[in-house]
Amino acid sequence: MRTVALRLAGAIPALIGVILATFVLTRVLPGDTASYFAGPTASAESIAQIRAELGLDRPLPEQFLRYVTALSHGDLGMSLTTGQPVLDDLAARLPASAELTLSALLLAMAVAIPLGILAAVKQGSLADHACRILVTGGVSLPVFFTGLLLVYVFYFLLGWSPAPLGRLDAFASAPPTVTGFFLVDSLLIGDTETFRAALAQMVLPVCTLSLFALAPIARISRASMLAVLGSDFVRTARASGLSPRAVILTYGFRNAMLPVLTTLGMVFSFLLGANVLVEKVFAWPGVGSYAVEALIASDFAPVQGFVLAMAILYVLLNLAIDLLYGLVDPRARMAA
């Protein structure tokens, strides 16, 4: 428990840095919020008036102070594009993004880890080659391309998947919000029809994202499994007559998972970035597309809110990974 508190305390300087950096970055970016919202025909006075209303005419340090003061009250500011508080916008859209990203991560792990292990155990076999092809493909195809390709093949040509227009098709209604994850919420009320509809919508974007995440996970799994299989303690296990199953699972797999766990945190952050594009392609109502639209409109508050939310998410995920690491590796427990 103290470890958790310590780790969270350790993340505070990083978060302060994130707040400062995003504030400065959004201010130095080209584009003027006031003139954007005043419209192309607005007069100089009306632009000045909007600027004063938004407080954009004050010196930067004062703007920052106001932003931080509001932030300390949990106020992320208002979005000028949606007219809603940023906090509400993010709260409404974050579950959509999280459901997509986590599902993609889980799918990628479910495919990549066994594949990497198999490729390492049977070096030079068919599985090894398949692993190599998948890894090369996964890293070389950009996400928006695989996304469009999947839509073209499975929606346009084959008609197997529903229109890529968000989380549910137009006729279905969202399940009552408990977790915000449609798959979980629909199951909670036993609504299998909504579950199936939500699942159908998710298949293509999740596949797109996970194809992207597969490559690093499979590579690390293969490499670390190879290293572990060549280690002294695996030789001891073999020399003790343990079955190949025990050698590979109990002795090999658990040790090989340690570097994979570390990589997962990094892969997750890649996914958060790739998410933005996938949400665009599949019209997914997530935080990524929200932030991109706000950025284009020079709408600072949502961008700052988005980056901060992602930073917090990343800190929490890494904490979870480190705690998991401690569960698997007794040496990490000692150091903590």
Binding site: S231, D232, F233, R235, T236, A237, A239, S240, T250, Y251, R254, N255, L258, V328, D329, P330, R331
Partner: peptide, 15 residues
């Protein structure tokens, strides 16, 4: 059965 050089490496570190 067999015993090895470098005994610490010869044992599974996380079991």
């Amino acid at each position: 059965s067999m015993i090895f050089q470098n005994p610490r490496a010869a044992l599974n570190p996380i079991r």
